[in-house]
Design a protein around this nucleic acid. Structure first.
Lengths: 338, 338
DNA sequence: CTGAAAGCGCTTACAG
DNA sequence: CTGAAAGCGCTTACAG
């Protein structure tokens, strides 16, 4: 059916080695020979078989991105960063989806085992050190994006710091009773953000109140959904006395939370987390995460490691930036504005 | 380094053919032999090399999804559908990103040429019939998602009908001067939706007015961005006389448009297109697109074709469903509600 | 600058 | 039920 290197070699009157050299433009092939081969190959519509290539040389010029659906909302930005980095190197990208609900670790192991790629980008996959140690056994280059460990190159956020910033801002604005609109308590980012929230309270001598940690009932995607935010805010607005303000653990949850406020007609100032593109348009005060840069830098690290396996893992932790828009304004002002 | 079938064969005291059979559990291997091989393989951490497998058998049990970044907002839903379908079949999925800005056709051709997969899902890639004919030459199973052609299996929406529904609803509600908040005029979905808009006008004996087609200046992602929607609505609200209502060509654009309305304090009823999850939470009246079902059904068709290449292409065109929420309510009522 | 040949790690008729 | 061997389509020392 489809042409092989033998067909081209025969048609061009050279050996298969020469055809191979033309396509890998590695060693020097005489310009005339090269031209002839290229012409024939083009006419016959020849394209090297990637599987055969991968088997014969022992590299595949391919990196793989493993990502849980959960982090979909970051996806584009991270992907843009990765692709911009890859564009200048000779690598192709494959994306594999990790189902967050069923044993993500073994799914990752399954991918690594198959040796599809020369390097792997693990995005928003939060494994314990013990689990990561298991992955280390595959002795393959891995870069962590949105997660951090001593064991691998990583580019992450300081979730704790981000939550601290937001909470502290609310306190400094004058609010005392600040509710923490949470997601799954098992989620690593949630744990870190809760830390930051507590730290801000402590620094400002406000005692921590367990009852101000509120979660929605929906736990799909670890609770990082509009629905879960909506449910949680409904609960919050029934609290007596009403909290002064809300730190909401994601923009997407804030979208749900805002619906709850609109429906009940009760509003409290809110700061959320992520700064999705849309946040600007719905006036969300939020903690910015530089997804694009993270994707870019993690890929750089990965490619470095592919070319130079020996070096120690390096880490990059981005500090968050607080972006204040209308959602955190005092309710009084909001009402006047309307 | 890593174990091959030879290592396992030697350690288990069998031939490589037997090991291969155990892993493909095709022909009957004696249970005792199988058990022995499996035990050894497990202990040695053996995993077949996918490239070698792909080369040796002539199939790869792999399908590939080609998608432009542009359609990011549909991504999760479509992907869910695809994965739910794939789960029951023995196929793996790869995702390849098509850069919408630079010669998408040749990017697709590059992928097809490499014969990475047994079938390809082309999502939201709108090629002309002539271009598709070029793809036909690769003689490989292809399913079109969110696009339609006689040449390939396809699952698409009736964009025309959707726009008609929305526009007609606005007219029946009593609005006459309805603005069409557009995106890139080159975009196929935009062309179809404009058709539907015109059809509704015509049926209701309202003359079409070129000046009511408004586009933002940002043309990134063909203008399907919050920013572009914001810019367009700003222009719309300066129109004299002010239009009665707006048909907005996407939810994400509507997010931007709503910001413009909030900022200027001028509001007009609006219906958009897509029904992203978030639409429910920001009260968007919109035309629902069943992304999940489309992903699922397109994948089914693709797998059918892989197993049975001869059959004629089949097509599925989903009708849209209009979902009415608050954004299309008369402004008077909205103001009262506040 | 170019060719012959071995090898990459598997699968699969063909025998037995 | 199992093995020997050819073949999948390429790359890459090794010669020349």
């Amino acid at each position: 059916m489809s042409k092989t290197i033998y067909d081209i070699a025969k048609a061009a009157g050279v050996s298969i080695a020469t055809v191979s050299r033309v396509f890998n433009d590695a060693e020097t092939v005489r310009p005339a020979t090269r031209k002839k081969v290229l012409k024939v190959a083009d006419k016959m519509g020849y394209q090297p078989h990637v599987y055969a290539q991968g088997l014969a040389r022992k590299k595949k010029n391919r990196i793989m991105m493993l990502i849980p659906v959960m982090s979909n909302y970051f996806f584009t930005e991270i992907l843009r960063g990765i692709q911009d980095c890859l564009a200048s190197h000779n690598f192709e990208l494959n994306i594999v989806n990790i189902n967050h609900e069923e044993a993500p670790l073994s799914q990752v192991e399954n991918v690594l085992m198959k040796k599809w790629a020369e390097g792997y980008l693990l995005v928003s996959l939060h494994f314990s050190e013990d689990e990561l140690k298991l992955l280390k056994r595959y002795k393959t280059p891995i870069s962590l994006v949105d997660d951090c460990s001593e064991l691998f190159d990583s580019v992450s956020f300081d979730n704790m710091q981000g939550a601290y910033l937001a909470t502290n801002y609310l306190i400094k604005t004058g609010y005392k009773k600040i509710v923490f609109l949470s997601a799954s308590a098992e989620s690593i980012p949630i744990k870190d953000r809760l830390e930051g929230y507590k730290k801000a309270l402590k620094e400002n001598k406000i005692s921590f109140d367990e009852k101000l940690i509120i979660t929605g009932d929906s736990m799909e995607r670890d609770g990082f959904t509009e629905k879960s935010g909506y449910e949680a805010m409904l609960k919050i607005l029934q609290l007596k006395p009403l909290p002064d303000a809300c730190f909401c653990t994601s923009d997407i949850k804030a979208v749900g939370a805002q619906k709850a406020m609109r429906e009940t007609g009760i509003e409290i100032p809110l700061i959320s987390f992520d700064n999705l593109t849309m946040a600007e348009y719905i006036g969300l005060s939020t903690v910015h995460q530089p997804m694009y840069t993270m994707g870019l830098n993690a890929t750089k690290k990965l490619i470095n490691r592919i070319h130079n396996k020996g070096v120690d893992p390096s880490h990059e932790i981005h500090q968050h930036e607080l972006i204040i828009r209308s959602s955190s304004e005092p309710v009084l002002i909001k009402n006047v504005a309307l």
